[in-house]
Simulated assay, not measured.
Amino acid sequence: MTVTVKITFDLPPPDTPVRAIRQSLSDYTRLPHDAFKLIHAGALINDDNAPISAYSLHENSVIALIGATDPRHAPQAQSERSIVTSIQTELHALRTSLRPDLDSFLADPTNQKEHLRLGELLLQALLRLDGIATEPASEEVRKERKDAVREVQDMLDRLDNAWAAQRS
């Protein structure tokens, strides 16, 4: 079962450390601050001491909050080949089922419901890719997932840019 929860909050000044956002989310969700990961634009926000500007966070940024896996309940390690296959399967599904809808939307970016639907599906794909365990894995596996995240993020950027352009 998949659940998506959206939280809107005021972004602090650009020089504010990331830990302030993590603490706010921890307070709001009542999760320990180390019980979740933060992802922005396909990148893991992993330095709580860095300013939020280091991660290009700005007004209307989308940050994914992913619950950390309890190692006691982690599945058995997968082989590198099966990890790569999981990544490629996710991308293939997106390319065949979602890209045609995205291309149609880009040709006529006026349907708000379609914009929201496609955005949600792309964000879910990013979360699924993030959920694919890459440890222990080779540099090839990490590169494969990084490339897949970039491709999905590019689709999301194209979607949002087309929507923004038609609204202006």
Results as ranks from 00 to 15, higher is better:
residue 1 M to L: 12
residue 4 T to C: 11
residue 5 V to Y: 14
residue 9 F to L: 15
residue 12 P to Q: 06
residue 12 P to L: 02
residue 12 P to W: 07
residue 13 P to G: 07
residue 15 D to H: 08
residue 15 D to S: 13
residue 17 P to V: 10
residue 17 P to I: 09
residue 19 R to I: 13
residue 20 A to D: 13
residue 22 R to P: 04
residue 23 Q to C: 03
residue 26 S to C: 13
residue 28 Y to T: 03
residue 28 Y to D: 10
residue 33 H to Q: 15
residue 34 D to W: 04
residue 35 A to N: 01
residue 42 G to L: 03
residue 43 A to W: 01
residue 43 A to C: 10
residue 44 L to C: 02
residue 44 L to Y: 01
residue 46 N to Y: 10
residue 49 N to I: 12
residue 50 A to N: 04
residue 50 A to H: 07
residue 50 A to D: 05
residue 52 I to A: 01
residue 52 I to R: 02
residue 53 S to T: 10
residue 55 Y to L: 06
residue 59 E to G: 12
residue 60 N to P: 00
residue 61 S to A: 15
residue 61 S to H: 07
residue 63 I to Q: 04
residue 63 I to D: 03
residue 65 L to M: 13
residue 67 G to M: 11
residue 67 G to V: 04
residue 69 T to M: 11
residue 76 Q to G: 12
residue 77 A to C: 01
residue 78 Q to N: 13
residue 80 E to M: 04
residue 82 S to G: 11
residue 87 I to C: 04
residue 89 T to G: 04
residue 94 L to G: 03
residue 95 R to K: 06
residue 95 R to Y: 01
residue 98 L to W: 00
residue 99 R to A: 10
residue 100 P to Q: 07
residue 102 L to A: 03
residue 103 D to W: 08
residue 106 L to N: 01
residue 107 A to N: 06
residue 110 T to W: 02
residue 111 N to A: 05
residue 111 N to S: 11
residue 112 Q to A: 14
residue 113 K to S: 09
residue 114 E to L: 10
residue 116 L to V: 12
residue 117 R to N: 11
residue 121 L to T: 07
residue 124 Q to E: 11
residue 127 L to F: 08
residue 128 R to C: 01
residue 129 L to N: 00
residue 129 L to E: 08
residue 130 D to F: 11
residue 131 G to E: 08
residue 132 I to G: 05
residue 136 P to R: 02
residue 138 S to V: 03
residue 138 S to K: 09
residue 141 V to S: 03
residue 142 R to N: 07
residue 145 R to W: 03
residue 146 K to S: 11
residue 146 K to D: 13
residue 151 E to F: 11
residue 156 L to N: 02
residue 156 L to G: 01
residue 158 R to S: 09
residue 158 R to C: 04
residue 159 L to D: 06
residue 159 L to G: 02
residue 160 D to Y: 01
residue 161 N to E: 09
residue 161 N to M: 07
residue 163 W to M: 06
residue 167 R to G: 09
residue 167 R to I: 01
residue 168 S to Y: 13
residue 168 S to T: 15
